[in-house]
Each structure stands twice: as structure tokens, then as C-alpha cells.
Amino acid sequence: MAGPSNDSNPDRPSIWLCHRINQDTEQAPAWMTGFEAETLAHLAGVRRYEFLTSRWLLRQGLANTSSLPPERCLPVDGRPKRAVNPEGRYLSLSHSHGLCAVATDTRPLGIDIEPSQRRPDWVAVARRWFSPIEQEWLFRADDPFSFLKVWTLKEAWLKATGRGIAGNLQTLEVRNQFELYGDQPDNTWFASCFYVEGFLVTLVYRGTDQDGPGSWPDITLLEPPLDDYSLALAGTLEVSWEPMFHRVIRAKR
């Protein structure tokens, strides 16, 4: 299964992607909230470009999944987990090596992206932070790409469940063949993993018992923002994606 995806469906999560532009502005764009403008003032270089692009993309994603124009779409202050406007929307952001991603839905979710060719010191990370079951099959596989899948799963899971990394990386256990077990038995959770634009893109979201195994999220690649980060609705670009897996996260046992 592979192909373009540019149409959003309000009944399932949406993923919005765009490539970062390395363009600065003298002042914060007029559409930014006071909190965002103050945060931007303390950033420089790549971190400033990432912040500008991701906050622009956030409004593009919200506008495309609602009837609101981008300039009326507002996130909460702090980490943008929810939208103030439109109401009832959950958000998640991720950016890495020039690509920005925003996920939107009416239920909690978390997204994480990593370049597929990244080669961290994954063995040391797994030994320190992963469960014995995870270490056993990962060390046997000896595959950095499998590690990246596990890492993005755990990052997306923690974002979706509203927790930080410290002390929580083992609340989702990734077993061989990517069977997933989490510590949130009172809700139905799903995980989708894709290869797109040279990146591993992983989304964890809270679904319902009616969500089937084929209910993949929508993925849209937008044209990058203009140099002044104006909020006119961006055009879409063709994007093809390869599915890695789509799984139910079972109750940990």
C-alpha cells in the first residue's frame, strides 16, 4: 500500500507536513499570540526557524480541518496540545532536520518524526532506557532502523498520553514484530508508522472500538511558507508514503 494522500477526513487523524524555510523576520508575525511572540524573541538560528515554521503549519492544519481561516486558529499557551480555536481540537508538533509535522484530531494524539538514515548510539540508549524484552529482540536484530521505529513510538506515546520522558519510556513496551503494550487500559489506542519524505513519521492516537485496522491517518504535504510567513492557505504538494505498520496498543500485562 502506497500512494498520495492530500484529502483530510474529519473522522480520523490528520498529519500535516512542510519543509522548514531558513528565513527570519525582524518581528514576530502579527498572527502570533503574545506567548508565542515572547518565546520567539528568545530563540535564534535553526530553533527560531523551526518555531516560526511549526507555528505557521499548526494554523494551516487547523484551518484545513475546520471552517476557520488560519488567522483565527489559536493554540493554547505553552506546549500546544490543544486548540483554543477551533474548540475541541487536539494537537501535536514535531520537527527534525528541516521537516515540520503537525497532527490534529478530536481526540488526544502524539506525533514524532526522525530522519530514516539517522544513526544514533542506539545500543547505549536501549541499554539504559528500554525493557529487557525490547533489548533482547533489538540487539538480536542489530538494526538501527528498528530502533528508530521503537524510539518514535515511545516519543509519540508519551506526547499522546501527556507525559515526559523521565521515568516513562517503559510505559509503552514494543515487542518483537512490533506488538505494542501500554499502561492505559481504559482507552483504545492506535499507532501508525510511515516512511515519507525520507523520514520515519509515527503517530499514536486515541481511537474507538469502531476504528478498524485499515483506518490510516491522512497525510498532506504543504508548500513551505512564504518568506514573511503570511497565513494565506498553502497549496498542497504530491506526497507518497509507505506504511510501516498500523497497530492496536494492547493493555500491558
Rank of each mutant, 00 (worst) to 15 (best):
A2S: 15
S8L: 14
N9W: 08
P10F: 08
I15G: 03
C18K: 05
C18F: 02
C18H: 05
I21A: 06
N22F: 08
T25Q: 12
F35D: 15
A37K: 08
E38F: 08
V46R: 14
G61E: 00
G61Q: 05
A63T: 13
A63H: 11
N64M: 13
L74F: 04
L74I: 13
P75L: 02
P75E: 10
K81M: 13
P86V: 04
E87R: 10
E87T: 13
R89N: 11
R89G: 05
S92Q: 09
S94K: 04
H95N: 07
S96T: 05
H97R: 15
G98C: 02
A101W: 04
A103Y: 02
A103P: 07
T104D: 14
T106Y: 12
P108G: 01
W122L: 01
V123K: 12
A124N: 11
A124Q: 14
A126G: 10
F130R: 09
P132Q: 11
E136C: 11
R140H: 10
D143M: 09
P144R: 12
W151C: 01
T152G: 12
A156S: 15
W157P: 02
A160V: 07
T161V: 14
T161L: 03
G162P: 05
R163V: 00
A166Q: 01
G167Q: 04
G167T: 04
L172N: 06
R175G: 14
Q177V: 11
Q177F: 13
D183A: 12
D186Q: 15
N187E: 14
W189Q: 05
F190C: 05
S192G: 07
V196E: 07
G198V: 08
V201E: 07
L203V: 09
L203R: 08
L203C: 10
T208Q: 12
T208C: 09
D209N: 08
S215A: 14
I219C: 11
L231E: 06
L231S: 00
A234R: 13
W241E: 08
E242M: 09
F245L: 13
R247K: 15
V248Q: 08
I249D: 01
K252A: 15
K252D: 02
